[in-house]
Design a protein around this nucleic acid. Structure first.
Lengths: 156, 156
DNA sequence: ATAGGGTTTCCCCTTACTGGAAGGTCAAGC
DNA sequence: GCTTGACCTTCCAGTAAGGGGAAACCCTAT
């Protein structure tokens, strides 16, 4: 006898599936509604019932999301995961696209970060009203960011 | 001999304000509705009318947004901008908070980027079905990302 | 029997817009 | 005068990815 044999065979409620997968119950329902996962089986009481495979899938989704893949990407990855005939080329392509997108975002954010840090550095930040940050936000050249965000700088 | 002296004194329609400020007309209305800017004056025909100061404000908002400040932040910056008695300390604080937030996000994204790039490198990406990316997404230890990167995971 | 927890559906809130539909206005062209 | 087209107005819906909370049902324990 199993020391903790509750249900016939790894049949979990949505809450249990949530704790085992890391995906909140509410989010699991959302994924179902959004078509990311198939509608769960229902028990006699109408409750959703999840098996080990379902939990596995949820963890897959959880990790993919944690890596920043969009739900659209996740759906695609999931498809490729289930459908092993699909070539790994597809997966790699998706991953590399994501890396490229991340590189772009990181570069942009770094740029912005340095711009703001540069402005903040020039603001003495005391009780006096003068603040170069506001000055520059209010009077930057029309081109917006174009001239100011190179390196740490923001030379006006 | 202004080549384009149409209106009495820099009185612009919403479309003109849009082109001069870089903020789309639709977004200007949205800002008004959201309380970021005060309701514009109206002409006899009910059209919104903008003056130079309004356009200035819109550009301020545009640049602040381009630097990644949230609308809530922008409202605050705008308040400080108009209300010069406010100390520059406030502004600097807001800017440095934003820099810190950017630093966190950049670090997290870099982490994720390296994780994915590492996985992609191990995937030969040919026509064969085996793909370590899928393998690892599907079978990582329960703790999720814990073993592979340092970030808390990119929960938005 | 009653309390408590978990589950169900439902709808609204978020951020910062963007798109579209239905209708009013205005200047130009014929 | 009439039409066309480019504006403008309002309101409604939708996006990504859920979170919050209500009202009702179910199950278990005391």
């Amino acid at each position: 006898m199993n020391p903790k044999a509750e249900k016939p065979q790894g049949l979990l409620s949505i809450g249990e599936a949530a704790t085992h997968s890391g995906v909140p119950a509410k989010t699991i329902r959302f994924y179902e509604e959004a078509g990311i996962i198939k509608p769960a089986q229902r028990g006699d009481n109408g409750y959703r019932v999840y098996g080990d495979g379902d939990v596995q899938t949820l963890r897959f989704i959880h990790r993919s999301r944690a890596l920043g893949f969009s739900l659209k990407d996740v759906a695609e990855l999931l498809e490729l995961y289930r459908n092993r005939e699909r070539a790994s080329r597809e997966v790699k392509k998706l991953a590399l696209q994501h890396v490229a997108a991340l590189d772009r975002k990181i570069a942009e954010m770094t740029n912005v970060r340095n711009t703001i840090a540069g402005l903040a550095e020039k603001c003495h930040g005391n009780h006096r009203p003068e603040c170069p940050i506001l000055e520059e936000l209010g009077a930057m050249p029309k081109s917006g960011l174009a001239g100011m965000n190179k390196g740490t700088g923001a030379r006006a």
